[in-house]
């Protein structure tokens, strides 16, 4: 193991933990953490914690352990930023990511996300106020049924049309009739 890394860090040559490191880094980058130093520090911290976690099932792949740790870290930060202690972690994750996106946290507070210091008040407030909705509360309105009397002739034509479409035999007969009329017309025209 390299002397530069703390003793609590996984073996440097372990491909599974290297994959975990790369995945965590990509996951954090997907959250638009752009500064290399922040990204690197956060990734290393998460990997170290995942490696040290004695409660984790040893059969779990390092990627899975590391991403769980990343998820826990992110959820803990959301709990603080949104002040939603005790909220269901799965929904909190979605709520937190939505709030981060709508608050434009990566753009406006690039250093705040996952920082050890408490989230800035303005960021917290903006995140808590961030929401999306498909529309205001519906005021359901029942449009009156249409009343356009189509007329007796139109109704009759409609019935004939429907019968022609529905009954294959009649449909074929009508088509044959039209075809015969067309052929007769052409025959007469060419006389």
């Amino acid at each position: 193991m390299s002397a530069l890394l703390p003793p609590t860090f996984p073996p440097r040559a372990d491909p599974a933990w290297n994959e975990a490191h790369e995945r965590v880094e990509s996951y954090l980058r997907a959250h638009r953490i752009a500064q290399p130093i922040t990204l690197s520090e956060l990734t290393n911290e998460i990997i170290a914690r995942a490696w040290q976690d004695k409660s984790a099932d040893p059969a779990l792949a390092p990627v899975t352990r590391a991403l769980r740790e990343a998820d826990n870290t992110i959820t803990a930060w959301f709990t603080r930023a949104l002040e939603q202690h005790g909220a269901h972690s799965r929904r909190l994750g979605v709520r937190g990511r939505l709030a981060l996106a709508l608050a434009d946290a990566p753009g406006r507070w690039p250093d705040a996300f996952l920082a050890p210091t408490p989230p800035p008040r303005e960021l917290s407030e903006t995140m808590r106020a961030a929401f999306l909705r498909a529309g205001p509360a519906p005021q359901l309105y029942k449009m009156p049924a249409p009343t356009i009397p189509l007329g007796r002739m139109t109704r009759l034509l409609g019935t004939c049309w429907e019968i022609t479409r529905r009954w294959a035999v009649i449909n074929i007969l009508v088509r044959l009739l039209f075809l015969a009329a067309f052929v007769a017309l052409v025959f007469l025209a060419l006389q």
Partner: peptide
């Protein structure tokens, strides 16, 4: 528009009705 413009169903089925 809400009161008068509910569209009727035409006889038959698509494409003509």
């Amino acid at each position: 528009f809400l009161e008068h413009c509910s569209l009727p169903e035409l006889p038959g089925r698509e494409p003509f009705g």
